[in-house]
């Protein structure tokens, strides 16, 4: 997907590091490798690749992630 990128600075993805429990499920379900693990915490490493599909939000056990796209 390196040669196919959509608009920058539009994703509404937010990660609250305080709430992250380090389960790494978000790195598993994200289809665009937006997250990486660093020191047992999830980190957003490629925000502009996020397509707001919500897979991470649905699977985060501690409610640390949110996305709030409009109607689309």
């Amino acid at each position: 997907m390196k040669n196919l990128r959509y608009l920058d600075n539009v994703s509404t993805l937010v990660l609250d590091d305080e709430k992250c429990v380090g389960c790494s499920l978000c790195t598993e379900v994200c289809p665009h490798a937006v997250f990486e693990m660093a020191q047992n915490r999830a980190l957003i490493v490629d925000l502009n690749a996020c397509m707001e599909c919500g897979a991470c939000v649905t699977n985060c056990p501690s409610g640390a992630i949110s996305v709030s796209p409009g109607v689309g």
Binding site: V10, A49, E52, G70
Partner: peptide, 11 residues
């Protein structure tokens, strides 16, 4: 497509 975000499409 599998990579466009709803927020981007709206913009």
């Amino acid at each position: 497509t599998p990579f466009t975000s709803p927020s981007g499409v709206e913009k």
